[in-house]
Design a protein around this nucleic acid. Sequence first.
DNA 1: CTGGAATCTGTAGTGGCTACAGATGCAAGG
DNA 2: CCTTGCATCTGTAGCCACTACAGATTCCAG
Lengths: 145, 145
Amino acid sequence: MSGITNTRGYGIGAISRETGVNIETIRYYEKIALMPDPGRTSGGNRQYSHDHLKRLSFIRHSRDLGFRIEEIRALLSMVDQKDVSCGDVHRMTMQHLGTVRAKIAHLQVLESALQDMASECAKGDVPDCPIIESLFEMGVVEPKA
Amino acid sequence: MSGITNTRGYGIGAISRETGVNIETIRYYEKIALMPDPGRTSGGNRQYSHDHLKRLSFIRHSRDLGFRIEEIRALLSMVDQKDVSCGDVHRMTMQHLGTVRAKIAHLQVLESALQDMASECAKGDVPDCPIIESLFEMGVVEPKA
DNA sequence: CTGGAATCTGTAGTGGCTACAGATGCAAGG
DNA sequence: CCTTGCATCTGTAGCCACTACAGATTCCAG
């Protein structure tokens, strides 16, 4: 065990493996200042601490939940300022939940439209395809006014 | 009524209004050869026929249903070659339907995860926010192996 | 003929990465 | 000590499907 620093930290490949975040993506997060600049070896390779690892995991989980980069930036700045008001976080989460639910609703409309079209179709080699027909004939969209 | 051609066709603003497709987007579709080059006035303004209008509506409806540009290109090339095999169209539609359903399923997973996190939260001004905690503590993702 | 709206071309930006190219760094084996 | 070969470096360009300009030109009603 060396007397000065025993854990040297992680290289970029290591935190990439640990968090499941792509190496290129990690550098991208650094560029957009979502991740702080890491230390460097004498040769210039990035060296990450355990805090970096935690932060990157946080980002990863948030992305997995569909939060956008700017939302994550907001969450992290609350964490950084130790100004984490649970109310704000709750609000953001609920807002995101609303977006997710809206997307689900939208996709369910598509789902049934596609389902309907597909069920009209005899799927033979007939040239008159009802799916194509319906794509042509949904009618010209009326002007807003 | 003029003796030569009574319908001059539509300007780009007109088909934009009719179809609800943005003017810039129409020009974009032309650039990527999804829409054929329209006629031009002597001064160089685009002039569209009723066929152009039908085609653009088709594209619009397909996009509304979430088909990608390349899928639409495939559909249109079948239409163009009058080689519309209903089976192929049906296959494409079902495949797209599968994608849509997968997206719905994915979003529903997110939805319940967000819901769970949010319901843990007392949403007060407490500094220890369970949402933040859970984003940190979902645990480091294990390497694949 | 004039004035203002419509349209023109071309380029750059969006989000969130991913994919290179070509130059280095690093660590283990001989 | 030196090689070998993988890891990492920087920087740029590409992806999708548009959208947003700038600055020039065209069109059409009054």
